[in-house]
Amino acid sequence: MSDKRRAFESPADLARPITQPVLRRPAATTMGAVLVVLRVLAGVWWLLALTFSWNDVLLDDLGLGDEPDFQALGNDVKEAISSGILNTVLIVGGIVLVIELLFALLVFRGVNWARVVVMVFATLSIIGSFVGWWLGGQEITVHTTLVTLALDILVLLALSSQGARAYARRPRERRARGSVA
């Protein structure tokens, strides 16, 4: 039989422990970590673009320009609400991006649970983009979600590879407690 990989692997085969240690980090794992970092950079770019176009987003996309209750507020109050919403989005987005960067480091180091979590969130992001396109008519363009969607698909392809899985599930030596490495 050839060394060609089967199109389908049974769950029992996937759950079986890896017995041979994989010594070298596969290119798929490195590429997966790099793609997660690129995803973080795309998130930073998105947050910057949101900051510079915040008034348009607030008035057009969120529809606050047409709300009579919002229009009745004074300019100082409107500015405080606007900056409060923007600051909240930026802080939460920044925290998410830092966590995603930590996951990139863990994936690079070959931590299996981090690889799985990154793949789950990439899947959820792809599904979210699809649902937004299907139900809401959200356009998938370079200016909206095309870059992050492409990065999520590439992350899934890289981290679901056989080499990345074997590296993340490789046997490791246990350190004794209190020992210095």
Rank of each mutant, 00 (worst) to 15 (best):
L73N: 10
E139H: 11
D61F: 14
N55R: 13
V57D: 03
I140D: 02
T145C: 09
E139K: 15
L47V: 05
W45N: 14
P26R: 03
R170I: 09
Q162I: 12
S129H: 10
S53E: 13
Y167A: 04
T141P: 02
A168Q: 06
L97G: 01
A166V: 05
G84C: 02
V89F: 04
D13Q: 10
A72P: 08
L97F: 02
Q20R: 15
V120D: 02
A168L: 08
L64K: 01
G163P: 02
R177Y: 14
S125N: 13
I99Q: 03
I81T: 09
T19M: 11
L101H: 01
V107N: 04
A122P: 01
L41E: 09
L59N: 12
A12Y: 15
K4L: 10
T88C: 03
V57I: 08
L102T: 09
T144L: 10
V111L: 07
D66I: 05
L47S: 08
A166Y: 09
I126R: 00
V98W: 00
H143Q: 15
L73Q: 02
R109P: 00
G178P: 05
L50P: 06
Y167C: 05
T141V: 07
T144Y: 11
A7G: 07
L58A: 00
F52G: 10
R177D: 15
V36G: 01
I99T: 13
V57K: 06
M119P: 02
W134Q: 11
F70E: 10
L38H: 12
L124C: 07
V131M: 07
S83M: 12
A158M: 09
A158L: 04
